[in-house]
Design a binder for these strands. Structure first.
Length: 235
DNA sequence: GCGACAG
DNA sequence: ATCTTGTCGC
């Protein structure tokens, strides 16, 4: 898959913030896409013991929600976790994984925020701008913004507001279950993003894309930890 | 100064 | 997010 825009990942904290402000101008907050046949789910896990990031991409058929391809990349972490600068830690391995992908998706669902971010440029927006593909930010918890709890029924939404801007929606994907935080990543409107997340979450709290990517990433993570254990006992 | 803070 | 511990269910 072709990466449209590239930049260095060796940045200071201040330079990373400047880059976010510059790139945030490129985010398109409307529906800019044609037919969506394949949807990607992206997730990253972290092994603290050997300081490795494990990035997984799962491609689903957009109608049947079955897996058509998956890729895993294990990489060294080169940037610390700083709230607001999450993408500078997790995107390098994610982009490596996209390079190995054979089935290009027309929509990417990210585990992390889109424009629901202090500088309106969370991981989902960052990935969307670099690949120029529609992305949705889908977080389990909030980074910024205030909200009221949405009604208890599936599909209920409440606006996520920061500085007077509606930066996302708090969306109930399953009745009586904690809602998730949906925001524009790139090339999609908030309303369409929520429609897709509901369509992708027929059974569980999280969309099938992130669920499958999470399962894959954790399977690889536990395999790595298992291998390290047998190496210890063999030495 | 203190708390809050995607994963 | 991970790690550690304990508890519960299969």
């Amino acid at each position: 898959m072709e990466q449209i825009l590239k930049h260095t990942w060796e940045l200071s904290e201040a330079d990373a913030i400047n880059l976010q402000q510059e790139l945030s101008l490129k985010v398109i907050k409307e529906d800019h896409f044609a037919e969506i046949n394949y949807v990607a789910g992206v997730d990253v896990a972290y092994s603290k013991k050997d300081d490795k990031l494990i990035a997984a991409i799962v491609i689903l058929n957009a109608t049947s929600l079955t897996i058509v391809e998956s890729v895993v990349v294990v990489d060294t972490a080169h940037f610390p976790y700083i709230p607001g600068l999450f993408s500078f830690r997790e995107l390098p391995p994610i982009l490596k994984a996209f390079n190995q992908l054979k089935t290009p998706p027309q929509l990417i669902v990210c585990d992390g925020q889109g424009v629901a971010h202090p500088r309106r440029f969370g991981l989902a927006s960052h990935l969307g701008v670099l690949l120029d593909i529609p992305t949705i930010g889908c977080g389990k918890t909030r980074l910024v913004g205030e909200f009221q709890a949405p009604e208890q029924n599936r599909g209920a939404i409440a606006p996520l507001v920061d500085n007077g801007d509606i930066i996302g929606n708090v969306l109930r994907t399953q009745e009586n279950i904690k809602p998730i935080f949906v925001s524009i990543g790139h090339r999609i409107s908030l309303a369409t993003a929520c429609e897709w997340i509901l369509k992708l979450s027929p059974k569980y709290r999280l969309p099938e894309t992130t669920r499958q990517a999470d399962q894959l990433v954790n399977r690889v993570l536990s395999q790595i930890q298992k291998n390290m254990k047998t190496e210890e006992s063999g030495t």
